[in-house]
Design a binder for these strands. Structure first.
Lengths: 221, 221
DNA sequence: ATCATAAATAACTATTTAGTTATTTCAAGA
DNA sequence: TCTTGAAATAACTAAATAGTTATTTATGAT
């Protein structure tokens, strides 16, 4: 069956359409479950074009993954929490993380899929190594500013904090579907989402702050 | 090529071998990536037997998932934290969760895979609904005991706490592979694992305890 | 012992799937 | 305007894959 509408020649847009379709399909079906033909159909592109621009399914997957990561890190860096007071910076970072995951569910799906494969494909990607170096530094700076201000507890490990911070949001959202069954409760209503974000901020605040600072905050409330 | 070794007739052991092989394959490859032929080969069973005992690939997957969940809940219930003092009960529960995830990586992989599919298959499983009801009750009891003892903060939501508790362990372990790339640090050495468990306990303790209790604990240390 | 039944084996098939070969068409630079 | 190289289309293929049909074989009850 010949295609009714022929495409004008536009390699950039073609590539973008393939990437968008592939992102959706890989996020939904995983690497093994994704179908090249489905991607081509969604992108409204001849399958041959995917092979032309990306070589094969695996490379396309890797490219999708790289793109997703680099967009996330770019958005995060744009936050510029450096100048906020420590507690507010922490809160802003958590809100950003939560909202980004919420608004970009395909990002967390892709990361989960990649972890299923033990990050085999991300390891092949030299491009990503650079991106992630300095945001550990940013957290270290934030923590030491907080300690200096007398509000954070000393000797906290930035990586542990970062993983906790991400994990509290990530796990709730990725595991929302089994979660709703297991906990017998709707987890994604507006109220539930707001309650969760507040709770996460509360957990991290309590984990990082000096107990004395917490008492002051409680009195103030 | 005829199979060199013929199997004695033992339907139970055959089913168990198929389940074990399927668990490994689904955990490693996801639902879409898993191959029925690989499962049969690993189980050292004719592929026909899988269809004989389980009907089809999807049902086998669902059975594997149900089994994994029910084993986990059984192990958890066997903990019997009801009689421990609140803080100790909390600590034991966190240690159990951490160690269970660590020792049963296929469980968390299966749960992640199932969530990729929006829990479509678990929803079809009436068997699981029952299992999960009373462990929210157990956490509610634990929290109220802690409040009564003056050690926990009041008005905490048991479900939020349970999700936080699971999430801190789950996310670290499922995302260990991308995590090692992103944070440029080994996350699974004995020391790293111990450090993480301690950190998680610290986070939850600080989140749940009254600041005054934290000060007392700090002085005591 | 033998017979009925379920367990196990062997061989096959219709589809699906990733990837290719071959051809046509457009658009920009000479 | 003509030519050339890349963009797009069309049609194909070999391998993989879930699921079947047909047959043989062991075992426990009679």
């Amino acid at each position: 069956m010949p295609q009714s509408k022929k495409h004008l020649r536009d390699p950039d847009k073609t590539k973008i359409r393939i990437m968008a379709a592939a992102t959706a399909e890989f996020a939904k079906m995983g690497l093994g479950g994704a179908r090249v033909d489905v991607i081509a159909a969604r992108a409204k592109v001849q399958k041959r074009m995917m092979y032309h621009y990306f070589g094969n399914k695996e490379t396309l997957y890797r490219t999708v993954l790289e793109e997703a990561y680099s967009k996330f890190r770019a958005a995060e860096a744009a936050l510029e929490i450096e100048n906020d007071p420590p507690l507010q910076a922490l809160k802003r970072l958590m809100e950003f993380t939560w909202n980004y995951y919420l608004e970009n569910p395909e990002f967390i799906s892709l990361v989960s899929t990649e972890n299923l494969h033990k990050a085999k494909y991300l390891k092949k990607s030299p491009r990503l190594e650079l991106l992630n170096k300095d945001f550990v530094k940013r957290m270290e700076l934030l923590l030491s500013r907080g300690v200096k201000a007398g509000v954070f507890r000393p000797h906290l490990d930035a990586v542990q904090v970062l993983i906790a911070l991400a994990g509290l949001a990530y796990h709730y959202l990725t595991n929302q579907h089994t979660g709703e069954i297991v906990y017998g409760r709707s987890l994604m209503t507006i109220e539930a989402r707001q309650a969760r974000l507040s709770f996460n901020i509360e957990v991290i605040t309590h984990a990082l702050c000096q107990p004395e600072a917490l008492i002051v905050m409680r009195e103030a409330a």
